[in-house]
Computed example of a mutant assay.
Amino acid sequence: MDSPAWRADNRADLDQVARSVTTWIESALDSPLYAFLASRISQDPQMLALVGAIDNAPPLNLLFAGVQLRLNTADPLAAWYPHLAGADARPPDADAYAAFSAYALDHAAELIEMGSTRRTQTNEVGRSAAILPWLVEAADAWGAPVHLVDIGASAGLNLCLDRFDYDYGDKTVSAINPSATRLTLQCENRGGFALPDSAPAIATRTGLDLAPIDAMDADATAWLEALVWPEHTDRLERLRAALAIRRDTDVRMVAGDAAVSLLETEANLPPGPMLVFHTVMAYQLAATQRDAIDASLAEVATRRPVARVAMEPVRGAGYLYLYTGLSYATAQVRAGAHAHGRWIDNVA
C-alpha cells in the first residue's frame, strides 16, 4: 500500500509543496472547484506557504474544509460553492481564485491553526458499498455474526453498514437491520463482481480512532460536513442521513492508537470472528505504525478468526485499491474503487 505524496516532506520547501499539491489534484477531479483552486495554488508562493504551514495531512483537504466551515451565504466567495449558491453557483474562474486566496490569506492564522489541530476524518459512508462484497465474503466463510471493527472510524458511520440499502445497478441489496431513516448507497458494479444478497450479520460494532467524533456533537458533525466537497450535495444529504442512522445504532467508540486498542478491543469481545476494515486511513500512518497494526492482527489471529478489508489510496493511481489480507505485505488487491464509493472495477 504505497500511499500518495499529498504532503511535502519539507514544508518550508515551496517546490516540494507545489509538487504535493499537483499530486493531490489527481484525487480531486470530482470537484472542479477544488481541482481548479489547487492548480492555481500550485503556482502561488503565498498560498503555497500557507499550505506548507499546515502541520497535518493532507493539508489541502484541511485548508479547503477550514474555509468551508467558516463560509456562509453572505461571503462573496460563496458564489462559487454549489452547496451555498445552489443552481446559481458560478463555474471556477480567475475571480474564484482571487476571492479564495484573498479569503484564505485574510484568515490564514485561523486556518493554519484549524488545519494543524483537526484531522481529515471524512466519514464517507458511500465506501460501505465498495467494501461490502469483500466483507460479506469473509463473513460467509465463517457462517456466524461478526464483531465489526473500523480502524480510523471517525464517527463510526460505516459500522452501520447493515442498516443501509445498496443499489449496484445490476443488483440491489436491502438492509437486514433497517433504521427509521432509510439510506440507499449507489455504487456501479463496473467490474462485474459477485455481489452479496445481504450485509453480514453483526454481533458488535467498534470504532477505533485517535480522536473519535461524537455523532451527537453539532460542532463535530459540522466539521464532517465541511469535509464534503462543495459540488457534492448528494454526499452531504447522505452524510446527514447516515448520522441519523448512527445516532440510532449501538456503536462502541474507542480512542487511542489502533495497534493497542485492537488488542484491548479483542480481549473484551465475546467469542466469535472479528472482521476489521479501514478506508482511506493508512496513508496517515508511518511504516512502523502499519507494522504495529499488522502485528496486533497477527496476535488476534492466534485467538479467534479474523479478516481484514482495506480501501486505500495508492501512489500514482487515480482511484483507491481494495485489499484483503491481514498484513500490508501480503494483502491481495481485489478491485479498484472510486474514492467515495461511486463505483468498483477491476484494477487496470
Rank of each mutant, 00 (worst) to 15 (best):
W142Q: 05
H340S: 02
V347H: 12
G152S: 00
Y323R: 09
E237Y: 10
A85S: 11
G336K: 12
A337D: 05
S296V: 04
T324K: 04
R90I: 11
A49H: 12
D150W: 07
A139W: 14
P200C: 07
Q284P: 00
D150M: 02
D9S: 08
M216T: 14
S27M: 10
T265R: 09
A138F: 00
R11V: 13
R235S: 08
L62N: 05
P230E: 11
L48Y: 08
A211N: 13
A108S: 15
S198L: 04
I213C: 05
V333C: 13
S179A: 15
V173S: 09
L224M: 04
D214F: 06
A242C: 02
D294M: 03
D93Q: 05
E264I: 00
M47C: 05
I344M: 06
A153Y: 06
R118W: 03
E188C: 10
E231R: 08
T184E: 14
R7W: 08
L262S: 04
G115I: 08
A348T: 12
L105F: 03
A180L: 10
Y97R: 11
R205N: 01
E113A: 15
Q284R: 06
W223P: 02
G316T: 15
G115D: 11
V125T: 13
G152R: 00
A12P: 00
S42G: 11
L60N: 03
L243V: 04
A310E: 08
A255S: 09
D162F: 01
K171E: 03
L275P: 08
P305I: 14
S116N: 09
W223R: 01
W229D: 11
D167T: 14
V125A: 00
A65I: 07
R247E: 06
E113V: 14
L71H: 15
D88G: 06
F164G: 06
R11F: 10
Y168V: 11
N61D: 13
D234Q: 13
Y103W: 08
A96L: 12
R303A: 14
A138C: 00
S174W: 13
A38V: 14
L183R: 14
Y34P: 12
V146L: 02
A144T: 03
L210H: 03
L297Y: 07
A348R: 04
A96W: 15
T184C: 09
D140W: 05
R11Y: 07
E225M: 09
A335K: 03
W229C: 04
